[in-house]
Simulated assay, not measured.
Amino acid sequence: TADRPVDDRTVAWLLQRGVEDGGQWDMFVNLVRKHGVVPKTAMPETESSSNSARMNSMLNYQYRQGAKQIRDSYAAESGLDQMRASKQKTLNAIFQILSIHLGTPPAQFHWQWRDRDSHFQRDGEMTPLEFAEKYITTPMEDYVCVVHDPRETSPAGRTFTIQYLGNVLDGPPIKYLNVDIDLIKQMAQHMLEDGKPVWMGCDTGKQMHRDLGLWDAELFDYPGVYNADFSLDKAARLEYHQTRMTHAMLFTGVDVVDGKPRRWRVENSWDEKVGDKGFFLMNDSWFAEYMFEIAVPKNYLPADLQKAWELEPIVLPPWDPMGSLAA
């Protein structure tokens, strides 16, 4: 985008969004397959891993400064080598900032532990990729992401991707399949009944009581309090920037009555001091209005949608709300 003006909508969006917390299921899979994972004992939590605002501020400074340097080199016709040198300098600074705030990922570590019966276990020296290969038993590549996007511009049964959205060079693209919300509920329920937790993305701040850990579509009576109309439907809220995916969590249980879900148990990542020791309760009415995405094994999809998954995705612009969870 160096040939575009800085106030071009795409350039402005990329500079504005910068680096934030968040990510898609496919991004997690890409990272694990390229770099692996480590136990927390090998790379403990830090202050910045749960309080990332200052770190992100420093990362965004380098990101935007690097963008200016590359664009200046392009404008001065300094050549591709100079632009690549500026890019590498920026990446080096970003890696250093991340290492200072989060620690440097270990290339190898010794893995030993006591099991639930207090028996000592040892695997010896391992790499992050070896650890992932041995201990991640979920077939991550078999999962696909389905979303509920009711806008008329987003036809059901089609796949979508977001321009410029990705986190690993040459990694698989971030892709979604748009389906009906009732199908998302059915698949999430079936996964939980099969003993599988469900990764999901939603607009977490709407109609939420943080301390009690509650979500309900009518938790707060805003029309009654303000004597005003609050009647935008889900599609309109997406189109007019009143809703978007803001947070990823995990379904760990569902309350089913007469075969239909009534309430959902959600494991959050904020803190054990909120909700019920970190767990929230979601009313099914909230699911319909503010849930957007789950990751599901492909074989849970109906046969026609399994075929639809193979379609070439429609490319949405980088500012589309369907890409917001990764920002």
Rank of each mutant, 00 (worst) to 15 (best):
A2V: 07
D3T: 02
P5N: 10
P5A: 07
V6H: 02
D7T: 09
T10V: 14
A12Q: 10
L14Y: 01
L15E: 12
V19M: 05
D21M: 01
M27T: 07
N30H: 13
K34S: 10
G36M: 04
V37A: 14
V37E: 05
K40N: 01
M43W: 14
E45T: 11
S48V: 00
S50Y: 13
S50W: 12
N51M: 12
A53R: 08
S57F: 08
L59H: 04
Y61R: 05
R64L: 15
I70K: 02
A75V: 14
L80K: 11
D81T: 07
M83D: 10
K87C: 11
K87G: 09
A93Y: 15
Q96C: 07
S99C: 11
S99R: 05
L102M: 06
A107H: 00
W111P: 12
Q112S: 14
W113V: 07
R116A: 15
D117Q: 15
S118P: 00
Q121K: 09
E125Y: 02
P128N: 02
F131Y: 09
A132T: 01
T137F: 02
T138F: 03
M140H: 11
E141T: 09
D142N: 14
C145M: 15
V146R: 05
V147Y: 11
V147P: 04
R151Q: 15
S154C: 15
S154T: 15
S154D: 15
A156C: 12
T159Q: 10
T161G: 10
L169E: 15
D170Y: 10
G171R: 08
V179H: 14
D180Y: 03
L183Q: 04
L183K: 05
I184N: 10
Q186D: 10
A188G: 09
M191C: 12
P197L: 02
W199N: 08
M200W: 05
G201P: 08
G205D: 10
K206A: 10
H209P: 02
H209M: 04
R210L: 07
L214I: 09
Y222L: 13
G224D: 08
G224N: 09
A235V: 06
R237Y: 00
R237K: 07
Y240L: 12
T246Y: 02
T246K: 04
L250S: 09
T252E: 14
V256I: 13
D258S: 11
R262L: 05
R265M: 00
W270E: 11
V274S: 01
G275A: 06
D276N: 04
K277F: 14
D284K: 03
D284R: 04
S285V: 05
S285D: 14
W286P: 00
F287W: 13
E289P: 12
Y290A: 00
M291R: 01
E293L: 15
E293K: 02
I294Q: 07
K298T: 03
K298G: 00
A303G: 01
W309M: 06
L311E: 14
I314G: 11
I314P: 09
P317N: 03
P318D: 05
W319K: 05
P321E: 12
G323I: 03
L325C: 06
A327Q: 09
A327L: 03
